[in-house]
């Protein structure tokens, strides 16, 4: 019997990250990169420190953002791994560990930061 691939775990994370990147990414870029800096539709105080700090102190925002970042990380890790394969660098256990390990590390850090922000209120 052929061994079952564990790819479904990483493909699901990749798919989730990809979908969120497509849905949320352009809006974030539009708001943070364009609308707020030129002051279109947002006041000059829209993204000041207190405002943002307060926003991230809310569990929904803090952890929501951490999960978003985590899925982005896993999306990137999966894509890098498969692009390397196309370029002739084939996925070894070590390469997988580096790619998905970095994504897991980044995700853990994001959750940790969110936890600190939320606990401090």
């Amino acid at each position: 019997m052929k061994p079952r691939s564990h790819e479904p775990i990483f493909w699901s994370l990749f798919g989730g990250g990809g979908m969120l990147a497509a849905l949320v990414g352009p809006i974030l870029v539009l708001i943070i990169g364009l609308l707020v800096p030129i002051g279109l539709g947002f006041g000059p105080e829209a993204m000041n420190y207190e405002q943002m700090r307060g926003l991230l102190g809310h569990p929904m925002m803090g952890f929501g953002l951490a999960i978003l970042i985590a899925l982005f990380f896993f999306h990137a890790a999966h894509r890098i791994l498969h692009t390397l394969h196309d370029l002739g660098v084939h996925a070894s256990e070590r390469l997988k560990l580096i790619c998905y390990g970095s994504a897991a590390g980044g995700s853990a850090l994001a959750v940790l930061v969110a936890l600190v922000l939320v606990l401090r209120g």
Partner: peptide, 14 residues
């Protein structure tokens, strides 16, 4: 299903 689930199955496709 065994063919589909294998690394050489659908997961060989990018």
């Amino acid at each position: 299903m065994e063919v589909i689930n294998a690394e050489e199955g659908v997961w060989g496709c990018t």
